[in-house]
Nucleic acid binder design. Structure first.
Lengths: 109, 109
DNA sequence: CCCACTATTCAGTGTTACTATGTACTGGTA
DNA sequence: TACCAGTACATAGTAACACTGAATAGTGGG
């Protein structure tokens, strides 16, 4: 992954994962695959799992352990009320940033 | 500043400052004021100065010391060729991110 | 029996923005 | 004179985050 992308993902990746979970509950391995599909090809598994543990500790998601047919049990994460609030905040912050940057980009020509 | 914004600025602030410098050369104190004008009210001076030193070490900007009438000499930074390339890369990475997130945001309703 | 795939965890690292403080120069004012 | 506000830059220490690399564990196929 480019170093620029790595830095830009800080703070953003959390929002991305919360947004994915806002659609439906999912487990780590699944989310990693989903990210790859969405174009984030080089996000390491370890990164996603660490993020999930973080948002769990903050109380943004509920967790349920579900047995898998193909491997160890899955930890299925679902967005709760607090998580939904946090996601709303995220979109607010994000749109603020995009507006400022769009303006800067337009000024630059 | 919100913690979310703090994290999201990582990687982005550098691009913002480079974009400002792409318009015209500027010095730290001036850039900090410019950021306040642009809506980034709570960015600490120390943050900007540290960033400027960083991009100087990476060779993205040229520096010239210019005496000031109102205080210590100013360090005026101007974007050089390498900085311009880096800024282009930044916009590329940024637009990739915004596209993915826009899509995610639209899916979320 | 080993390998590929599924699934999670964790210690150590590098980068970044923030906090808090200090330094230095000028001009106005009490 | 002494002090303070404004200008201008620097830096040590901290917290947060994504990445690297590796380990662990379960299942099924060659």
């Amino acid at each position: 992954m480019g170093k620029q992308m790595t830095e830009m993902l800080k703070g953003t990746l959390e929002g991305i994962v919360l947004a994915i979970l806002s659609g439906r509950p999912a487990y780590g391995y699944e989310i990693t695959a989903s990210l790859r599909d969405k174009g984030f090809a080089d996000i390491a598994e370890g990164t996603v799992y660490a993020l999930l543990i973080r948002i769990e500790k903050r109380g943004l998601v509920d967790v349920e352990k579900v047995p898998s047919e193909k491997g160890p049990p899955r930890k299925v994460y679902s967005l709760n009320g607090q998580g939904r609030d946090h996601l709303d905040e995220f979109w607010g912050t994000w749109s603020f940033l995009t507006q400022r940057l769009e303006q800067l980009h337009d000024e630059g020509r």
